[in-house]
């Protein structure tokens, strides 16, 4: 754990010393403020469109940061050969994988906190209310979704050679799940038998990342989700993250580095 945390702290340091995050945050803030400055029929209480846009930007930025940062970790270590002095220390490859995962995931958490604080300020400035429970749930679920995403990208980074192709594949898969995941069972119903079973199997096997997308509930001020359900979703994400991490370790464990 000590070793994993040491590696994680380096990953977090890298994130805040690189400019990516600031660029994305400033972009998000600028676009949101720009959209917020629009006047619609002299009504300054209109807020939901702004919440929706802000959350969309947050989702895009967080996914970009999560996949981009994670996909590059292990390949960059190998390419810059920093992995050699590192693994020459008393550290196992499992600890390296765990450390990279923790680092990327914690970094995503920090990023999310900054983004959601901004979101909270924006919506509170219009609505004059602070749906703290809902916002916290959105942040929490988003963060756990990113755990699955980070673990997935980490697995990709030890399977695929080039980080850019890994990032692209990950993004396509993740976006596919986010957009289609919920409806695959309906799609399966339309198909003839062999495909029907295949699509249904995929539907049950893949991590339903779209569960964690509660933007509609937040935008339209629905009540917070039952906390037990929230906890269930957390366990669901944790299970998939552990699965992907385990797979990463299996692949990486015996991989020659030279």
């Amino acid at each position: 754990m000590n070793n994993a945390l040491a590696i994680a702290s380096v990953v977090v340091k890298e994130l805040y010393r690189r400019k990516d995050f600031y660029v994305l945050f400033v972009l998000t803030a600028l676009i949101t403020l720009l959209m917020g400055s629009l006047n619609f029929f002299n009504d300054d209480k209109i807020v939901r469109y702004l919440k929706e846009i802000c959350l969309l930007l947050i989702w895009i930025s967080a996914l970009t940061i999560a996949v981009g940062t994670t996909a590059r970790q292990i390949p960059a270590e190998r390419e810059n050969r920093t992995i050699f002095p590192l693994l020459a220390k008393p550290i196992s490859r499992g600890q390296l994988v765990a450390g990279k995962f923790l680092g990327c995931w914690l970094a995503c958490g920090l990023v999310l906190i900054v983004f959601y604080l901004f979101f909270g300020v924006i919506s509170a400035s219009r609505e004059h209310q602070w749906a703290a429970a809902s916002y916290f749930q959105a942040l929490w679920l988003h963060w756990w979704m990113l755990a699955v995403v980070v673990a997935m990208a980490l697995l990709g980074s030890v399977v695929f050679a080039a980080p850019s192709s890994n990032a692209t594949i990950c993004l396509v898969v993740i976006l596919g799940i986010l957009l289609m995941g919920r409806h695959l069972n309906q799609v399966a119903l339309q198909l003839a038998e062999p495909m029907n079973t295949v699509v249904y199997a995929i539907y049950f096997a893949l991590p339903h990342l779209e569960l964690f997308d509660v933007r509609d509930l937040v935008v339209h001020n629905w009540d917070p989700i039952n906390w037990l359900v929230c906890g269930g979703a957390t366990l669901y994400a944790a299970a998939y993250a552990v699965f992907f991490l385990f797979a990463t370790w299996l692949v990486f464990r015996r991989q020659p580095l030279a």
């Binding site: 000590n2 380096v10 340091k13 810059n80 050969r81 050699f84 002095p85 590192l86 020459a88 008393p90």
Partner: peptide, 28 residues
């Protein structure tokens, strides 16, 4: 053991002191 690889680069965004502290932490 101490190991010096041929042709290596280290985490460029860290300072020498931070890098050494990171490795020291791994050695506990």
């Amino acid at each position: 053991i101490g190991y010096l690889p041929e042709l290596t680069y280290y985490y460029k965004f860290l300072t020498a002191e931070e890098l050494l502290r990171f490795y020291a932490r791994i050695f506990r």
